[in-house]
Structures are given as structure tokens and as C-alpha cells.
Design a protein around this nucleic acid. Structure first.
Lengths: 247, 247
DNA sequence: CTGCGAAGTTGCGTTATTTGCAACTGCCGT
DNA sequence: ACGGCAGTTGCAAATAACGCAACTTCGCAG
């Protein structure tokens, strides 16, 4: 494993927090500033970092370009985009697209609510496996053995009074999600937010992504969030159809 | 300058093109696969790359997370977002937000057209300085000396018959843009696309970003794109106001 | 205008890190 | 069961990274 690369990534992470000077970065990594300088020079060459007129380092456009390139390459994101935008426009609520990969559930797209309330979620972040609607939808499609394995490996951090606290409950919930074809998060992650999510399937019938609507209950109470289900399911079906699913 | 970091970035760039196997990556970099493996392990630890079940490497969620974090930190992007979404919804056309930094103009946000025609532009990419409306708007705010310096340093690659071909014409155009408060790209970059752009100013009165609308002329002819100007200017003014500009 | 201090940069010797090789392992298709 | 392909590991050689210390540059204060 490469120490140099690890340090470079730590630099990027540090810059993700905000602009930094050379000395601040050297301090943060605990290495000599010469070392940091040379790492930064390479990163700058690749446009991953950018130095402004005041010798402050920022994350650079090369990073954004690479990220959006990679996101666009995900077929499912592209096919989902227009439908998600429409759902977002129709409901006015926050819409997420998430996928399961390598044991984690990651947000791969997000359309913000028109409400001023902002959610703590972002493209690229991991969704908690035991207390989000998207994760339930994605896990519910795993074969039983896979579900059990994942369920056993989760740390059941309780976020609210409703958070699922153990593998047994989670597996039961997944069973239900698989049966009904959608999932909910009734204030399980954030006390004041409810979500509903539905699966997107490809031609093989496997679930390749999950679409969700998240609503703070100051905006809509739980019951009214459930009333959005038909629109959500229609969107998920439309995306599935565009992704080649037959049913 | 760090060879290791440079190689790691080349790996990421390669993966930006699509998924790759270990051997393909070693081939592409011209180094031993052991070397690539260890770089990848570090990148994987930082969630910048991800290896799927078939031992194919992809760009990972850590990259997306970092990128969207950094983009959200740009105040101007956040303040502009609702206005751009509205402009996009009202016109149905592609809307861009771009900023000038370190001698280049970079797209920092994009709202896709509702037409099926897709534009070749992406967040993080550089806009050509001599043939895009956003660049003209941003360059027009530089002090005269700065304009001349930039104008002299550009390679005037002609893209269409309308492309500006030299510093003299560009400086004259910038003069006009500064005077009229908006810029256009009348099929200067792509033969079938017209754009208009307007400046966003902050409290100091400096131009900190540019908003643009881009329309393929199969959708709207040039004259009708100009009719979108009032909406564009209103959006730019609204963003400026939210950014603290007084006038 | 001059001097001081803070912050970034460069040259260089040392050495830790990385590198490539070769051999090993595990998997897939025949 | 076998052969080949792709990824992984141990090891010795040497390159590339490291930290130091001295140098430069810039901004500010006297």
C-alpha cells in the first residue's frame, strides 16, 4: 500500500473541508511542508487542486470533471434523470437515487426539495443500511443468504426511537419490503424525516437502484408522505421500463 | 513532483473512461501490475476506486462525495441553485453556471434541457475562452491589462465559421460585452448551438460567475434565443442580489 | 524606505518506500 | 482433472520521496 497516495488522499479530504494554506496542510498531515508541497504540485498538475492568488489551496476542477464523468457513465443515472426531475417537480420534495455496491448503499443522484429545509445527504455518501428506505429496497433484492450476511455485519446505531436495532427485525422488514415492493423510513434515521423508496429493475429483473422521496414532517405528516407512493411507484416503473425491464 | 501521485491520477483518469481490469491498467500506465495493484489498494481504502465482484475497477463513491462536498462549499453555487433551477424550468433549456479561476473558465453547475438533445459539457470542464458566452462575460470583468494578457495567451482554435480568430476581435467583443452587460455565442463554438450569458456579481461588484442558456437551433432559432435575454438577466440579477450585490 | 517576520521554494544527502521480478494461489472453462 | 488466466505475496535492489536547512519572496510596521 502506498504511503504517498494515502497522504495525497488525506490532503484532498482536508481540502474538502475548505481552503487551506501549505502550512496548515503540513500540520494536518504531520509531515514536513516540503513533502506536502510536492504532493500538491502533482495534484495541481492533474487539476485536482487549485491554488488561488493568495496561496490558498482548493479542490480543483479536474476532480469535478472526473466525478461528473463517472456519474454520467452510470447508465442507470442517465436513464433515471428525467423521471427523477419530473418527480421532484411534481412533488416538490427531495428525491434520491441510490445503488448498492460492494456492501454499501450509495447515493448517486439527488434532487433538492423546493422547501428551504435542507437535508444532510449528498451524492457519494453512504446511506445507513438499517434505517433508510433506499437501503431496505436494495437489500431486499439480495438472495436470503446475502441478506443475512449483511444484516449480521451491520452496526445497529440507534438514531431515533424507531430505528431498527437488530438483524432479526431488519430481516423481517426486508421480507415485507420484498413482498410489498416498496420501503419506508418512518423517522428511523432522522426524527423529523419520513421517506418512501421503490426499486428500479433492469432487463434481468434485478434491482439496480432505488428511488426515494424524503420529507421533513414539518412539511408533510407521515400519512401524507404515504400518499406520494403512487407517484413514486410510477416513477420507479418508468425508470425500470427505460432501463429495459419487461414487467 | 511526485511520480506516485501522478501515476495514481493517471489511474483515476483511465478509470474515468470506464471500468478496467488490473492488467489493462498496468498496460495503460506502462508499469508492472504489482505497482498498479498497490496504488489501487490505497485508492480503494480512500473509496476513490471500487472493485466489483468480477475484479473490475471503477471510480468509487469517495470521489463523488468529495466532489459534491466541494461544489456545495462554493457559496455562489448554492445561492444560484434555486434561481438556475427556476430558469431551467421556465425556459426548458440547458442552463450553465461558470466561474473564472486561475486563468480558466470552468463550469460549476449545469441544468439539462428537457429536450432529448444533449450537450457536450459537464461540470468541471473548461469552457473555451474565445468562443463561449460564459467566458466572454467572465473575461469582460477583468481589468484591461488582465484581458489583454489572457487574450494574448489563447489559442484561437476555430470551431465554426463564426469563431473569433484573434486577440484583437476578442478584446473588441469583451468591450462590448462589458458595456451591454451580457454576452452571446452565435454558433461560435458549435455550429448549431447559440448561447447567451449574463454576469453574477457579489457585494464588491466584481463578477464572480456567469449564467448562460444554451439552445440548439433545431429547438429555437437564434432570434428566439435572444428573446430569452430578459429572463436570463432577471435570473442573473436575482442571484447577484442573493450574493449580496447592492445594485 | 528599510527591516522584520511569515510563508513558500529549492538543493541535497539519507533512507524509507516503492518497484519489478518470480513464484504462488485460486478460479474458470475445457 | 487440467491448463491457463488474473490477481496476490515475499523479497532484494534502487529509485523516488523525505526532511533538513538555507534561500527567496512578499507584506507589513516602524
Amino acid at each position: 500500500m502506498s504511503q504517498t497516495v494515502t497522504r495525497a488522499l488525506r490532503l484532498l479530504a482536508e481540502l474538502g473541508e475548505g481552503e487551506r494554506s501549505l502550512d496548515q496542510l503540513a500540520e494536518a498531515l504531520g509531515v514536513h511542508k516540503t513533502t506536502v508541497l510536492r504532493l500538491l504540485q502533482s495534484l495541481e498538475e492533474g487539476r485536482f487542486v487549485h491554488r488561488d492568488a493568495n496561496y490558498r489551496y482548493h479542490l480543483g476542477a479536474g476532480l469535478f470533471a472526473l466525478s461528473s464523468l463517472a456519474l454520467e457513465q452510470r447508465g442507470i443515472r442517465r436513464t433515471a434523470a428525467p423521471h427523477l426531475a419530473e418527480l421532484n417537480a411534481a412533488t416538490g420534495q427531495t428525491v434520491h437515487l441510490a445503488a448498492y455496491e460492494g456492501g454499501e448503499v450509495v447515493y448517486i443522484d439527488k434532487y433538492d426539495s423546493r422547501q428551504p429545509v435542507r437535508m444532510y445527504s449528498r451524492i457519494g455518501l453512504r446511506a445507513s443500511l438499517h434505517c433508510t428506505a433506499v437501503a431496505k429496497v436494495l437489500l431486499a433484492d439480495l438472495p436470503p443468504a446475502g441478506r443475512r450476511k449483511v444484516a449480521a455485519g451491520i452496526e445497529y446505531t440507534p438514531h431515533t426511537a424507531n430505528t431498527i436495532t437488530g438483524p432479526k427485525e431488519l430481516l423481517a422488514e426486508l421480507e415485507q419490503v420484498a413482498a410489498q415492493g416498496w420501503a419506508q423510513d418512518h423517522a428511523e434515521h432522522e426524527a423529523f424525516i419520513n421517506c418512501v423508496a421503490a426499486p428500479v429493475r433492469d432487463a434481468s429483473g434485478r434491482v439496480v437502484a432505488a428511488v426515494s422521496i424524503s420529507v421533513p414532517d414539518v412539511v408533510l405528516p407521515y400519512e401524507q408522505v404515504l400518499e406520494l407512493l403512487p407517484q413514486l411507484l410510477a416513477t420507479a416503473r418508468a425508470v425500470s421500463a427505460d432501463a429495459g425491464a419487461t414487467a
